[in-house]
């Protein structure tokens, strides 16, 4: 337990170790730790920013979706209205066309009837002449009796 030169050797060794630790080992370790701390802080800040950006984007997309939904409703309503109008228009056109066709048909019918009646009248006149001629058993001069026959035909 007596003090001896070991004391001096230990003191010198101690100071050398402290010096090496202080000058060589310590700075890179501390620098690396601080750099890592900064990186982690940056990473956490970036994560926060990303989360905020995500929330922002979600809100924006929801807004866009709801706006699109409103727009779609508008477009749908407009389209319905237009379709209704088109149907209405087509109906009107069809009705007009139908009326025109009917009118034309009636016209045609009337004309045909008139025509047929004229024809019939003529044929009846001729038939009457033929009949009368047969009844009278004599020839009737068609030319001579044209006035009579026409009068007869007009009366039928």
């Amino acid at each position: 337990m007596d003090l001896n030169a070991t004391l001096i050797v230990q003191s010198i060794t101690f100071l050398i170790f402290v010096l090496l630790m202080w000058r060589i080992a310590w700075p890179p370790i501390i620098a690396a730790m601080q750099a890592r701390q900064a990186r982690i802080a940056d990473g956490l800040a970036a994560a926060d920013r990303s989360a905020a950006a995500l929330a922002d984007a979600t809100a924006k997309s929801e807004q866009a979706v709801s706006a699109a939904r409103v727009q779609a409703q508008d477009i749908l309503a407009a389209a319905n209205k237009q379709a209704q109008q088109l149907i209405e228009q087509a109906k009107n056109t069809a009705q007009q066309e139908a009326a025109r066709i009917v009118a034309k048909a009636q016209d045609d019918v009337a004309r045909e009837v008139g025509h047929a009646r004229e024809e019939l009248r003529k044929q009846v006149g001729e038939l009457a002449v033929v009949g009368a001629a047969k009844i009278l058993k004599r020839e009737i001069d068609a030319k001579a009796h044209a006035d009579v026959l026409n009068d007869l035909a007009a009366r039928i």
């Binding site: 050797v9 101690f14 630790m21 060589i24 890179p28």
Partner: peptide
């Protein structure tokens, strides 16, 4: 000189100093 004390002390000190120097040399973030 207490040879045993000095040798064990220096060897142990060098051991941990070596460990720290190795880590310091490879230190990165």
């Amino acid at each position: 000189l207490n040879i045993d004390s000095v040798v064990f002390s220096v060897v142990l000190g060098a051991l941990f100093l070596f460990l720290f120097l190795r880590v310091a040399a490879r230190a990165n973030s």
